[in-house]
Amino acid sequence: MGELFASYNILGAFGLTILLAVSSAIGSLLIGTVVAIMRVSPIDFLNKVGAFYVNIVRNTPLTLIIVFCNIGFIVNLGMSFTNDIARNNIIWAIIGLSFYHAAFVCEALRSGVNTVPVGQAEAARSIGLTFSQSLSEVLLPQAFRGAITPLGNTLIALTKNTTVATAIGVAEISGLMKEMMEFRPDLIFVIFFLVALGFVILTLPVGILTTRLSTKLAVKR
């Protein structure tokens, strides 16, 4: 096993996986929040645009989105952020991952809003809170707590989905794993369990943390 670590940059590849996961998590949180605001806004047009986005994106395979980032934006339109090809691929992978997971972040946030009973809004209004007061003091705090678990699940799914970035030539762990398996078929089980263990280590804490948080912050009704 030490041999593997010596000849392949396993930790570096996992580092890139983490970089992809963290950047895409931030990106998808930003885009997803905007879409979620559109989805819950009283303006019908924005609502429909948000719904359209979510329905299109979540019914498209992520692999297709990543491949489109490559073929459509990099190759065809020649859009590049830097001259460094490897870095440009990473940036486009992050963009693809962010736009894809934004749909799920939006649904997570929306489901959080939907855990708030109508009675809460009615009660807030009837004790004379203004719109912004009832939003900031009563509704949103409950909505965020209700969204912790689905957001955590989206983060876990996102971490695992960073592997698809290999389709755009990003040297993250699944690409390296493929390479290692091709050159060292004798160690195929070791390689698999090593990579699998890495993902367990990356995703398990998120699961435990969100479970803790959602139990601790659960709104008792």
Partner: peptide, 25 residues
Amino acid sequence: APVDTQPIARALHDADEEVLHERYR
């Protein structure tokens, strides 16, 4: 379900399949 299903919570079920990666008890 994490909360009792109020009528308003119905749209919660539109939440997507990715959410299935749920790992809380």
